[in-house]
């Protein structure tokens, strides 16, 4: 873990951490380098049919976003953010929103995105599952326009899924940092990033629908729920409460965002990452400084 952090902050890896030495080393370190960082990855924000809440979430990293754009990623495409008309080649495409299949251009855009991006990330409920752009119920009645929108995974292969409505600034940040480590890191960092991203890649393979029912089918009715309460905390529309310790979902309120299932420790739980939580949280913290 020590070496992850060291290379990330550009310091020389050392045999062992000696607090005293680290301090003097920090003092001796020259002021922030002037030269542009050459080794950045390229990232684009591809805006399909979404409410821009996902983009706002990315921006809600505040200085973290500035840090990401300074040191780890060049934004090569993004509506209103980058003055680029056609989708260019890029390492990572952060796709927000579902695809309106009545709109020829949107369909072409998502296909182009797949061709031009090494890694396609579905950011948020709409890109991942259709969410509120489709007939999600969520207190609504069925409307004709609901039939026009497809999650991007119905049209192209998706590599990583970030569920939720809106997705959290912190998970988007973590995925950006891990994508950087995966593409530019040392062997050790690549291995860590691979392990971290694996369950989010598995979620992408799992399918393009989400619902409170995922908890019912794949957690509760599989005898796996232990009543932690994560699902209720994760739900953006408070569709989940707990009765006698177990989740009770108001499925008519559910907007099909996938946050509850993704957050549930019994949907996926990877010991090799979770057991290192302290080091990884410090690593991400360090990367944002």
């Amino acid at each position: 873990m020590q070496s992850f952090k060291k290379t990330l902050t550009g310091e020389e890896p050392k045999a062992a951490a000696k607090p005293a030495e680290v301090k003097t080393e920090k003092k001796a370190e020259p002021k922030k380098e002037e030269k542009p960082v050459a080794n950045k990855i390229t990232v684009g924000h591809v805006h399909m049919s979404g409410c821009t809440g996902c983009l706002v979430s990315l921006a809600d990293n505040y200085l973290g976003l500035v840090k990401i754009l300074d040191d780890y990623a060049d934004l090569v495409y993004g509506l209103t953010l980058a003055d680029v008309r056609h989708i260019p080649e890029m390492d990572v495409a952060l796709v927000e929103g579902s695809v309106c299949i009545q709109d020829h251009e949107s369909v072409e855009d998502i296909k182009t995105t797949r061709k031009k991006a090494k890694v396609v990330v579905a950011v948020g409920g709409c890109a991942s599952y259709g969410n509120i752009t489709r007939f999600a119920r969520g207190g609504q009645v069925n409307q004709p326009q609901h039939e026009s929108f497809l999650p991007i995974g119905n049209l192209i292969d998706v590599d990583v899924v970030i569920p939720g409505c809106a997705p959290t600034p912190q998970l988007i940040r973590n995925v950006c940092v891990m994508a950087y480590l995966l593409l530019r890191g040392t062997e050790e960092q690549k291995a860590l990033a691979g392990k971290y991203l694996k369950p989010l890649m598995a979620l992408a393979k799992r399918g393009t629908t989400a619902c409170f029912c995922d908890l019912m089918n794949d957690v509760i009715n599989q005898g796996l729920c232990m009543g932690c309460g994560s699902c209720a905390a994760a739900c953006p529309v408070r569709a989940i409460t707990h009765e006698f310790g177990k989740p009770q979902g108001q499925r008519d309120l559910c907007i099909k965002c996938g946050a509850c299932y993704g957050q549930c420790p019994r949907s996926f739980y990877n010991f090799e990452v979770m057991d290192e939580f302290e080091g990884i949280l410090e690593l991400i913290d360090g990367a944002m400084k």
Binding site: Q170, N174, C228, A233, C235, A259, P265, M274
Partner: peptide, 14 residues
């Protein structure tokens, strides 16, 4: 475990 997952994979834990 749930708390740490909320920190490492904050899917809905803004």
């Amino acid at each position: 475990q749930a708390v740490r997952k909320a920190q490492l994979y904050p899917v809905g834990m803004r």
